[in-house]
Design a protein around this nucleic acid. Structure first.
Length: 396
DNA sequence: ATGTAC
């Protein structure tokens, strides 16, 4: 007599070994948080070894994990940090006598083109590296990247904590350069090497992953300095060390556990630039987030729309000219029209609400606002929408 | 966000 299937089926091996970790989202009830992102937080919370998931007010859905979240676990999961290991935002002093956006926009260097050690041997920007290129990785060195990355010349607007701003050497009207960029191809390569063998599973050799990860974090920070130096030399300012530089995609080892940050900046006693949008102010804040928030603060306004939605709705609502010359009078250097729509201010949440939520939950204190003058995204026009390409062909 | 495949 044949054995019935259930009799030959072994007992399931994946019995639940623990309750799901607590999930806290630090946003007010009125703040828009996509339910998909909260679902992703709960999926992460159910992972083996997870002890706490903290969603920041800029929380939104990511590809494999939520963006705007800090996730504490006894197990190291590379996919929770994602491919742009070492991505962060730095603020540099940028003393210029005069800053007319129209004139300065045209003087930005080509930050889509990597510095070549031979052809650009004489470029003074190399000096900030001091000969140190982590992992020997030269691909894309000195480039800003795509997506939400940018290099922005901004003016300090409202000073909200004068003593703190003073300590940072910032006063109303001062110029700063804000650089949001990561580890370009290096972090992507590190995640891919893990994913090819282990998918979304844990790192079997945490020390090995962390060694590669730390190099990408260092590469990202050095690249932000390199970008700032390139712009400083081109615009006639003096290259300087950053006054603020915090990485929001990384793993931090805390008391033997792994704190994964994905779009969540370190908020434990540190100063962080919380990026607004390409056309609204950003906020420099002092973070003082505790254990409940996994010692983290938001990293930006957070997407409100997917890139596809932003493109569709943005095209109906705005002209390219409106997005390149913003309501605050700044200029957005972006040759790629699709990216311009994807990154339109309306595709993001209101930064004031994100900051208000951080304040309401006691995670941060605003220090000063920065108001954009020129935001560099890309000079490259390669990825224009198909309709524009058809039009361009028609004109020939 | 990325390099790469389509």
């Amino acid at each position: 007599m044949p054995v019935r299937p259930e009799e030959s089926t072994p007992l399931p091996q994946q019995l639940p070994t623990q309750e799901s970790a607590p999930v806290t989202v630090f946003a007010s009830p009125g703040s828009w948080i996509e339910s998909d992102a909260v679902v992703q937080c709960h999926q992460v919370a159910a992972l083996d070894g997870m002890s706490r998931v903290a969603g920041m007010p800029d929380l939104h859905p990511g590809k494999a994990a939520p963006i705007g979240a800090a996730m504490l676990s006894s197990v190291l999961y590379p996919h929770l940090v994602g491919s742009d290991i070492g991505c962060g935002i730095a603020v540099f002093p940028f003393p210029l006598k005069r800053a007319v956006p129209e004139r300065l926009a045209g003087r930005f260097p080509d930050l889509d083109r990597a510095l070549d050690p031979v052809r650009d041997a004489d470029d003074p920007a190399w000096a900030v590296l001091d000969g140190d290129i982590p992992a020997g990785h030269l691909d894309g060195v000195g480039t800003v990247g795509r997506g939400n990355h940018f290099v922005e010349l901004a003016r300090v607007g409202t000073v909200l904590a004068p003593d703190h701003a003073d300590r940072l050497g910032l006063a109303e009207g001062d110029l700063v350069l804000i650089v949001h960029s990561g580890s370009r191809g290096l972090g992507e390569r590190i995640l891919r090497a893990h994913t090819e063998r282990h998918g979304a599973g844990p790192a079997p050799d945490p020390a090995g992953y962390l060694a590669a990860h730390d190099a990408a974090v260092r590469w990202g920070a050095l690249n932000r300095r390199l970008l700032a130096a390139r712009v400083a030399h081109a615009l006639g300012s003096a290259p300087a060390a950053p006054i603020v530089d915090q990485c929001h995609n990384l793993v931090e080892v805390r008391a033997g556990r792994y704190l994964h940050r994905k779009g969540a900046a370190p908020g434990d006693g540190r100063d962080v630039l919380v990026a607004g949008t390409r056309g609204t102010a950003s906020y420099l804040v002092h973070g003082h987030a505790g254990a409940a928030a996994n010692h983290s603060v938001a990293h930006g306004a957070g997407r409100k729309m997917s890139r596809a939605d932003a493109l569709r709705r943005g095209r109906a609502k705005h002209t390219v000219e409106q997005l390149r010359r913003t309501p605050v009078g700044s200029i957005v250097v972006c040759g790629d029209r699709q990216l311009l729509f994807e990154e339109a201010p309306g595709a993001y949440k209101r930064i004031e609400q994100v900051i208000a939520d951080l304040v309401a939950h006691g995670l941060a204190t605003p220090v000063a606002t920065t108001v954009p003058l020129v935001t560099y995204k890309t000079l490259d026009a390669a990825a224009r929408p198909a309709r524009d390409r058809r039009r361009a062909r028609g004109r020939r």
